[in-house]
Design a protein around this nucleic acid. Structure first.
Lengths: 173, 173
DNA sequence: TAAAGCATGTAATCCGTTACATGATTTA
DNA sequence: TAAATCATGTAACGGATTACATGCTTTA
């Protein structure tokens, strides 16, 4: 249950609303964990019920600001240190490359070049983010990861495109 | 629906059974897309119903061997080239690093060193796999990605551990 | 005053995991 | 003959996405 702890960790940094939490996920966590509002609200309800967060106050437009409780803080800490991280990862784009041999090499190469361009673009966005003021002392860690990840994807895509091109040339010769 | 196309792509390489497909996922696709037998069997049933695969024959222990149909092959090709890849990725371990500032720096550093060791181990496994004979012409592409990904994770973990250590030293001084 | 954005939620559906259930064949 | 492995499936549950539903407040 990563969403649960992600929310708790963000609320630990400072009191917020569900709506703002969604924006935080969008802005800084999108590359590691996506979350929709429709999933956030019920989860906040559960965290509240369980006493891990409390309502600090209600603003205009029935906006509810939550803050973390001592129990909530203890729970994030427990999660960070005592729960074995889930290292499994899915990558639909990479799954696809297993099957590139099924299509025309020229099309496969074009596909990989397009992907490389997209990853170069993402890399720029994260490099820019790395230059900005971090929200918490540990925020630079995952941002640096995002930079390295995008760069590796871009470089791999170019390597793969070259390889597909060279192999199809060799096959024709 | 990546599982669907992953199965189709594997069956396109050569006729197989559900059981063997699960082993293929375990062996070579585990790092990009995990799949359980209980998910594979119903999906094979659907692919069969839709005429994308057909039963080649039945062996001992009511083992069913499927092969791809022309429609099935057309469908994988369409997926590879015409369907926008899902580049979203979740990474529970990386989400956690957003919240490392909530725990003691010495514990945070120890956590990152443990992670680094795990990624070094995975790196070795994939380097070994990269040395073996590929199952299809495009199989080396995702294997090379796995090697790069694990290496980057290991290096990042060590970088992050050093950073946490240095920052907590600076704070004490 | 209309549009954009803020704000919260429910319902239906889908995908994936875990647990359950069964039985055949090979190997030690 | 017992254990391991092969082999196929169903059922229950949980997490996540998409679609739906509602209404307030600010800004152009």
């Amino acid at each position: 249950m990563s969403l649960r702890h992600g929310l708790l960790g963000l609320i630990a940094a400072r009191p917020t609303t569900g709506y703002d939490l969604a924006k935080s996920f969008e802005a800084s966590l999108a590359n590691v964990w996506a979350a929709q509002l429709s999933q956030i609200y019920p989860e906040l309800g559960r965290l509240h019920e369980q006493g891990l967060i409390r309502v600090l106050g209600t603003g205009p437009r029935q906006k509810k600001t939550y803050e973390i409780t001592d129990e909530g803080l203890a729970e994030v800490r427990r999660w960070v240190l005592d729960v074995e991280p889930d290292r499994a990862h899915r990558n639909g784009a990479m799954l696809r490359t297993f099957f590139l041999w099924l299509v025309d090499p020229a099309e496969a190469e074009a596909y990989l070049r397009r992907e490389a361009a997209i990853h170069r673009g993402n890399l720029e966005r994260f490099e820019e983010m790395a230059g900005r003021e971090p929200a918490t002392p540990s925020a630079p860690l995952p941002v640096e990861w995002a930079v390295r990840y995008c760069r590796e994807l871009a470089e791999w895509s170019e390597w793969a495109a070259d390889r597909v091109r060279d192999e199809s040339r060799a096959a024709r010769a």
